[in-house]
């Protein structure tokens, strides 16, 4: 199962929009919103090309997230839950290159059939919803009729700044946490009206998992003293691992 899983991820990484209904992904609600493409399974680690290869992202990691527009007026959030507190969502800067669809599709006809996407759409590289059993396609979330905005599973249209409604259709727990304050990022003040970022400000909607990144510099040595040897990472100093082996590995 795991092997198949990795195969899919590589498959996807090559920019394939998932349509093959024969593929049976892992069951049991694997949550991809926090999933790390390189770190979860041995197969993934053995295949470092998988996360590195997706169609070149325009920006560095973590993904092509929507850029919050702090100048714009925050919008009152739609209540996802009856007891949800009031909060305001920071709108995102608009993608004027790709949207609205009519910019291009006034000339070019659109083809709604699920297929392998080509230029200029291939950089979306949808890596979302493996657990959707092949049901995911652009128009699961996008509104084909309108200007390319969002659309809930029930057919309600939404603006891009209401993406959280869309996301929390499936990610109910995350949605709830976001609404109440245990998930997401609050902006500005810790008191008064709560202003938060939309889901898409942190998660690139077409590949919501976070990618590894280089850590910034660690603790500095006190001025006037030499950096001791053990501050150098293990692989560089070539020593033995000072950490005890985990119990499950010792048992073997």
């Amino acid at each position: 199962m795991k092997l198949k899983f990795a195969a899919i991820s590589i498959h996807l990484a090559l920019g394939v929009c998932l349509v093959s209904s024969g593929v049976q992904a892992q069951e049991g609600g694997l949550d991809l919103s926090g999933w790390d493409w390189s770190a979860t399974s041995d197969e993934a680690a053995a295949e470092p090309a998988a996360p590195a290869e997706p169609a070149k992202p325009k920006k560095p990691r973590p993904g092509e997230t929507a850029i919050p527009d702090f100048e714009a007026e925050p919008q009152a959030a739609i209540a996802l839950f009856p007891d949800m507190p009031n909060l305001k969502v920071i709108p995102s800067q608009k993608d004027e290159e790709m949207l609205p669809c009519g910019n291009c599709h006034q000339w070019a006809e659109s083809d709604p059939t699920p297929r392998l996407l080509k230029e200029p759409h291939n950089n979306f590289a949808l890596q979302h919803g493996l657990h959707g059993k092949g049901q995911f396609w652009c128009f699961t979330c996008h509104d084909l009729e309108g200007d390319g905005g969002l659309r809930t599973l029930e057919g309600e249209t939404l603006g891009f700044d209401q993406a959280y409604v869309l996301c929390s259709q499936c990610h109910v727990q995350e949605g709830r946490d976001w609404a109440f304050g245990a998930h997401g990022k609050r902006i500005g003040s810790w008191r008064g009206e709560r202003q938060v970022l939309n889901c898409t400000a942190c998660h690139y909607q077409h590949r919501p998992g976070w990618l590894p990144r280089k850590a910034l510099a660690g603790p500095a040595m006190r001025m006037g003293l030499e950096r001791p040897e053990h501050w150098v990472p293990l692989e560089q100093r070539g020593g033995r691992d000072p950490l005890p082996t985990p119990i499950w590995e010792r048992a073997r």
Binding site: A39, A215, P233
Partner: peptide
């Protein structure tokens, strides 16, 4: 005591 305070490079590391 088993934590690494001086880790460098790409994070998060597996495990």
């Amino acid at each position: 005591h088993e934590g690494d305070h001086y880790y460098q490079g790409t994070v998060p590391e597996p495990g």
